[in-house]
Design a protein around this nucleic acid. Structure first.
Lengths: 167, 167
DNA sequence: CAAGTTTCGTTTCAATTCAAAACGAAACAT
DNA sequence: ATGTTTCGTTTTGAATTGAAACGAAACTTG
């Protein structure tokens, strides 16, 4: 990514961390249990310079922690931090979308099962507290506690149709 | 993205659709209600050539549908398809991760509320059918119905520690 | 209906980023 | 002690990016 996103937007901020072609692949492999440079490289097929860069970036962003292992501590294990583990919800959502809409049911390359029982990971469905599924029409973006003027201007007014901009 | 991911992996396939710096921003704005080229451009700040390219790609990938509007149909509205709307779960997961781990609670730039009631969108928490939260340790990747030999080799055996590779 | 403005791009170009391969040094295994 | 693996860095050509200029059709206005 050449320039980072600068706008105050949760998605923009997240994309500054993992908005590229490889970062989430690497985080996924960390979930699958990879910890070492060469494990990540083999599992994903990423070029080594790119991997080195992404691991460094993920470490700076505190998604991974780099631990010296081996006698002289010149071998490293990259392990998920809490912040990194919290990306599991994002990964599950992506996997489920991809399985449904790209591969299609019955063609999933990998499935996730519960170790103890073998059951599949259930589908993640956003719901209101009363159990109603959340659909796009029912939600409205609204300025949050960290909003600035631009956001307030954009989202406070309920999007009038013919609001004048000037004059 | 220069080369697309080719490995059989749900996350890789998804990243082939939206694994770059701008695509998810654009999809988010579609969720917020943008439909027109200039709306997307203003909301995100993306360069026009990039936007034109991403809209074309999203249309080819059937995340957006491009509808001719206006008299002669030479103005366009880009609207989410079902496949695109299904990305809401991914977007919600990303927004919640970012609000918690990047902005921090109390500093969210935008919040999502229910139009009818004003209640916040509840947190998305992956759970097993019995209600237990899903944590990384309890899940295991396993070959799916569309697995190939490489995947079966990698995930069938429960990751022996000192398995010989050669000889 | 004529003139000005907005929309929706395409083209060009310099700068950046990417991927592949070569290279290297320390660590580990035998 | 030797060979192999790990974990990178450097180099190089190719691809991508972002900014700005350009253009044509569509709307708006009075």
């Amino acid at each position: 990514m050449t320039n980072k996103h600068t706008q105050p937007c949760s998605v923009a901020a997240a994309l500054n961390v993992f908005g590229d072609a490889w970062t989430l692949r690497i985080v996924l492999e960390a979930f699958y249990g990879s910890t070492r440079f060469e494990e990540f490289r083999r599992a994903t097929g990423v070029a080594k310079n790119i991997l080195a860069d992404r691991l460094k970036q993920l470490t700076e962003d505190e998604v991974l922690e780099r631990r010296g292992i081996g006698k002289a501590g010149q071998r490293y294990a990259y392990v998920l931090t809490q912040k990194g583990e919290a990306l599991s919800t994002v990964l599950l959502a992506i996997i489920q979308w991809s399985d449904h809409w790209v591969y299609g049911e019955g063609s999933e390359p990998v499935i996730l099962i519960r170790r103890e029982s073998g059951e599949r990971v259930p589908e993640l469905i956003p719901r209101w507290d009363d159990g109603t599924p959340i659909d796009r029409a029912s939600i409205a973006p609204s300025p949050g506690p960290g909003a600035n003027d631009a956001i307030r201007k954009r989202f406070s007014a309920p999007a009038k149709k013919n609001a004048k901009k000037k004059r």
